[in-house]
């Protein structure tokens, strides 16, 4: 499977993302600077986490208007896969490739810890390596991960099974205590209507080898490799 990782000024998780692709798929991803206007011929484009443009104006707002974005749109429109993590998720909502918005955490605090996620849709190209309803561990590190969408959009997401990950407790229950940022209905990750663009706040790329304390994040990359 061939992959590319977009790099914007202020992004800081691009090497973690590249390492995850390399470790799991055995192929070195191509790093693509934001001023490029063409993408290499790859199966997956990852939009990594960090603080593009210092989160100025809104998280991901400036990056979403970068020269590389039309090529990203074309890649998605062609049905190829796009994985946005953390700031990458924020960038994807700002481009309109994913619905809704990521707002300031309800606690107003930056939250850096490990959470549990429930895989609510294991039939996507990003989650086929997991079992439906499986509870996985995943690190989070964000100040603005409070997912918001209007009621019509939420009904559409729920009705079409497009909520892929939800914050949960160890038993898979969706509770207020297990929700780290106030996201509506505990939403941690969603896909677009076509199912080829995934955005999620947690960092699966940071739980892919024993040294990191677990392998729960590998499933995303294994699923993508299968789908390619």
């Amino acid at each position: 499977m061939k992959s590319a990782v977009l790099v914007f000024p202020g992004i800081n998780r691009e090497r973690d993302m590249a390492r995850a692709f390399r470790e799991v798929t055995g192929v070195e991803p191509i790093m693509v600077w934001h001023t490029e206007t063409e993408l290499p011929d790859v199966d997956v484009v990852a939009v990594p986490g960090g603080f593009s443009y210092g989160d100025y104006l809104r998280c991901g707002a400036i990056a979403a208007r970068s020269p590389i974005i039309p090529a990203l749109r074309a890649h998605a429109a062609a049905g190829r896969h796009v994985l946005g993590v953390c700031n990458g998720f924020q960038i994807l909502t700002e481009t309109g490739l994913l619905p809704g918005a990521l707002m300031r955490n309800a606690s107003l605090r930056f939250v850096c810890k490990e959470v549990r996620l429930r895989v609510d849709n294991a039939a996507t190209a990003f989650t086929s390596a997991y079992a439906p309803g499986q509870v996985i561990r995943c690190p989070i590190a964000h100040g603005e991960g409070n997912y918001f969408a209007d009621p019509e959009t939420l009904a559409e997401l729920e009705g079409e099974g497009r909520v892929v990950f939800r914050y949960c407790d160890a038993e898979g229950r969706i509770t207020e205590a297990a929700n780290p940022n106030g996201a509506v209905d505990g939403i941690a990750g969603i896909v677009n209507a076509a199912g080829n663009v995934l955005g999620m706040m947690p960092h699966p790329e940071n739980l892919i080898e024993a040294l990191q304390g677990g392998l729960d994040g590998r499933g995303i990359f294994e699923s993508l490799a299968r789908a390619a």
Partner: peptide, 9 residues
């Protein structure tokens, strides 16, 4: 519409 506001929110 294009940048200054996110009309979703």
């Amino acid at each position: 519409e294009k940048l200054l506001a996110n009309t979703v929110i």
